[in-house]
Structures are given as C-alpha cells and as structure tokens.
C-alpha cells in the first residue's frame, strides 16, 4: 500500500513519460487522451478517451498506464473510458506536434492536409490516400523530394 498518496502533479509527470504504443515519439499526454486524474479515497481514477473507436492501441494504452502506475506503487487504480467529448487532434500538445514533425509525421492542420513535407519542408505535397498505417494517419507524398510520408489526420 502507498502510505503517502503521490500528488496529481507527480502522477501527470509519470504519465508524461509514457510513450504512445504505435507512435513512440510522442507521449500519451502529448496525444491528449488522458482527460482527467483524481483520487477517490485510495483509488486513483484515470479517465482516458479513445482516439478511434476501433484503434487496437486502446487496450495496450490502458495496460501501459496500469503497469507504469503499479510500478510507482499505486496499487488500486481504475481506468475509465470516456467517449464524449470525442477526442480531437486539437488536444495534441504543441510539444506533441513538434515531436511528430521531428519523427517524420506531418502534424494535423485545420485545412485538412499537411502544410509541408516533414523531410524537405517543401509545401508541394499531394494526397495518396485518406487512410494510412494506423487509423489516425493518412498517406501523402512530396512532389519535390518525391518521398511518401505520414500525415496525422485532423479530426
């Protein structure tokens, strides 16, 4: 048992270090899917919202959170799934967007397409497909350097 409950700020910091299982360049907090943390007695309640309803990473994410917090000494925790308000890419942090771009994934843009090729920075890009290697991405191509790249869809 934890004798002194860690502060919620401390727990947020721990979760900050947890990578997304499919895009390990960004953390779960960068992704904006952890919506709330609170203590209910000795139970830590973690509210998580799924990115896409069929995303297979959702279960892995819940397991990763549980394992990480158990390792820090939190033994009783409850992971709550919240559907509404539905996850939006507006919840990606600025740090998350920068990390995606560094990793070679163009971050989401309200215009519906990437602003530039993440590799050569050219703005001459074209869409290959609305769907990509994971539910959250689409496939685009740079018409200057000719490299295909992932674009994080704006939803």
């Amino acid at each position: 048992m934890v004798t002194d409950k860690p502060s919620l700020d401390t727990v947020w910091q721990w979760l900050d270090a947890l990578p997304d299982p499919e895009i390990p360049a960004i953390s779960l907090t960068d992704l904006g899917i952890i919506r709330d943390l609170r203590w209910s007695g000795d139970t830590l309640e973690v509210t998580v919202t799924p990115t896409y309803s069929g995303c297979p990473a959702t279960q892995v994410i819940a397991m990763d959170i549980e394992t990480a917090l158990n390792d820090r000494g939190i033994e009783t925790l409850e992971i709550k799934t919240q559907l509404s308000p539905a996850w939006t890419t507006d919840w990606l942090t600025e740090r998350g967007r920068a990390r995606l771009a560094d990793y070679g994934i163009a971050p989401p843009q309200p215009a519906g397409g990437p602003s530039a090729c993440p590799l050569c920075k050219s703005s001459n890009v074209e869409r290959i497909s609305q769907f990509g290697s994971t539910p959250c991405k689409a496939q685009w191509r740079c018409t200057d350097c000719l490299e295909p790249f992932d674009y994080f869809k704006c939803i």
Partner: peptide, 8 residues
C-alpha cells in the same frame, strides 16, 4: 481501416 472503425 474502414473495417476497423466499423468493428470498433
């Protein structure tokens, strides 16, 4: 991906 969304 479409199938995955629908099954979800």
């Amino acid at each position: 991906n479409t199938a995955l969304d629908l099954v979800g």
